[in-house]
């Protein structure tokens, strides 16, 4: 995977396969602690403890089409490369939470990538699932709740032409604006070096 937004897309696809109805994606960037956290939680069918222990092994997968499952192992490797790690909490009764931690300024930390495109793909491809996306950057915050977007479009799917227009406005304009506005911690980090 070239960037973190592709990892997010890939891991959330697991949640969808696990039958999740609600998925929450939280990205937090903290310059003071030099920490980037990506947290993905779902209410899908969950995994038992034994499977959680094995799930980072690339030769473990629930798929029957092929015998290798690389998604989570690749995400864990990306985190490790940048002085971080991946944590999985899951319950067989339902629900999984994946947390990936990265050293924000690490030279091998992959770039964020096109988050808007990842979210657009997820929401338009699965309009029946409720997504919450929260991104904080040193106290500033962007939030998107697909349930709230649906309420703005009564009787229309988020995958309809009108829905796509609304999503595009939120994700390609508002989110981009949030991501591109000056990040107060950024220059501080540079000055330290």
């Amino acid at each position: 995977m070239q960037d973190l937004s592709l990892h997010i897309l890939d891991v959330v696809e697991n949640s969808i396969t696990a039958g999740a109805r609600n998925i929450e994606i939280i990205v937090s960037e903290d310059a003071g602690k030099d920490l980037l956290t990506i947290e993905i939680s779902d209410d899908g069918k969950g995994m038992d403890e034994e499977f959680v222990q094995k799930v980072l092994d690339p030769f473990i997968t629930t798929r029957t089409e092929r015998r290798v499952g690389l998604g989570l192992s690749l995400f864990a490797e990306s985190a490790r490369m940048s002085n971080g790690h991946l944590r999985i909490r899951s319950n067989k009764l339902g629900g999984t939470k994946i947390t990936a931690l990265f050293q924000h300024s690490h030279i091998d930390r992959r770039p964020m990538g096109d988050l808007g495109s990842t979210l657009m793909t997820l929401i338009a491809g699965n309009p029946q699932i409720d997504f919450v996306y929260r991104h904080t950057r040193d106290g500033r915050r962007f939030e998107l709740d697909s349930k709230e977007l649906k309420e703005r479009l009564p009787n229309k799917s988020l995958a309809s032409t009108e829905g796509l227009k609304l999503l595009r406005k939120e994700l390609k304009t508002n989110l981009l604006e949030f991501l591109h506005t000056a990040w107060p911690g950024a220059h501080k980090l540079r000055d330290q070096k």
Partner: peptide, 14 residues
């Protein structure tokens, strides 16, 4: 959109 598809550029197709 499997891991393989995503790595090969499926999101760009979407």
């Amino acid at each position: 959109l499997g891991t393989c598809g995503i790595a090969a550029g499926a999101r760009g197709i979407v």
